[in-house]
Design a binder for these strands. Structure first.
Lengths: 218, 218
DNA sequence: ATCATTTTTTAGCCTTGCCTAAATTATAAT
DNA sequence: ATTATAATTTAGGCAAGGCTAAAAAATGAT
């Protein structure tokens, strides 16, 4: 089954996958916004995807990936993560440089090349930020972990993952000693969804609840 | 000057560059054949390239690259050679696997990534077959060397380059001990453009004159 | 419950790059 | 020198994947 879909199709599938973490169908405008296209363009593409059996679409209600669509989307995530890591480790890219390049390469590189990169990297199951790398069969390694924002106060925890964020935010995390494997603890939580103060090995910091959500602990 | 041309444009420029080694303008049908497109398609693209100042086109006569077209074509050659070598050295591709992948990647990879690959490879000026790798400014290192077919008989020579050939032919060369750096000598030349018999470190072989042309010596 | 607003879809158009078929120009043969 | 052939260009289409503007459906407010 050589799934040779166009770059656009792959981008739509990936976007649907990422917008779908809850479980409710994805709205057309959400999708269009994510991909920086006009809503009408998204509608047209969704119809194509539905015809190809990659999504289920109920007009005026939204779309969700089918199993085959999900598999292809997961494969794009795999490619993306492996390419990013390869760019960092082998070609010495900085964090804030990898995404742009990976965004293009993920559509161009063969499955074989992705596998070779993965070998060279030592067959990792997670990327340096703790995000799981799906395997070649479309299985996503289970990731325990809870958002730090939902963790009880004053209870020691270990960071297991930093969910995808902008390079600036990731860099900020790194500066604050917030990295997978490090210990953290919530020392104070301001009322009305105010900033959360945490202690790490390297000191105390305050974070918005939104940012704290990106830190998964266990 | 971010020259961001489409994949097709880049392919046309590269093809024109390769077909133009002599100096005479390239015919539309030659170009079309090389790119596996209909002649009419090539005509249309040539007009676009001429409008963009990348080629000079005299209707019914042929096309030649302008300086700016040549620069971009040379850059594609640089990319291709570096990518091929990277695939071999870093990702352990075999000869016959690199071309297909490089053909796609050369259009997808950023200049930055090409430079990083080149660094990792140790900034080579020639690829493993002896072909020059143009520098980032579009200069092609001069390659002395003469086709073996034009070398005098019974005169020792050193192989400096194997010009681009199919993977099968390159593999055959390797089996016969025909590699850059190796010594060769013509021991016999059959009449009427017949096979040329050569001696290498690993014995004697006969080659068609056409193949012997691909071996450049000095 | 109706009217206004927002979201989604439909309709029609554009660009890129390919195609085939027909017209045109160049080249070769008598 | 004319005619036949081959190469090239023009003309008209098609598929992808965008766009805008207008119509239709859903949602929210009074």
């Amino acid at each position: 089954m050589p799934d040779m879909h166009s770059r656009s199709v792959q981008d739509y599938l990936k976007a649907l996958y990422k917008l779908q973490h809850n479980d409710t169908p994805v709205s057309t405008s959400e999708l269009a916004a994510r991909l920086h296209v006009a809503p009408a363009s998204a509608t047209a593409m969704i119809k194509k995807l539905a015809d190809a059996g990659l999504v289920e679409h109920v007009p005026y209600q939204g779309s969700r990936l089918t199993e085959s669509g999900r598999r292809e989307a997961v494969n794009m995530v795999r490619r993306h993560r492996i390419i990013e890591q390869f760019l960092q480790e082998v070609l010495h890219y900085r964090w804030d440089e990898v995404d742009e390049e990976a965004e293009v390469l993920e559509h161009a590189v063969s499955d074989k090349m992705v596998d070779r990169m993965w070998e060279v990297l030592g067959r990792p199951s997670h990327d340096p930020h703790g995000s799981p790398i799906p395997d070649a069969d479309g299985h996503v390694p289970h990731q325990p972990g809870t958002p730090l924002s939902e963790w009880p106060d004053n209870t020691p925890a270990t960071i297991v993952r930093l969910v995808e964020r902008s390079p600036e935010e990731l860099r900020y995390f790194a500066q604050q000693g917030i990295r997978p494997g490090e210990a953290v603890q919530i020392v104070q939580r301001a009322p009305f969804d105010g900033p959360i103060t945490i202690r790490t090995a390297s000191g105390e910091t305050s974070l918005s609840p939104e940012l704290a959500q990106a830190i998964h602990v266990q």
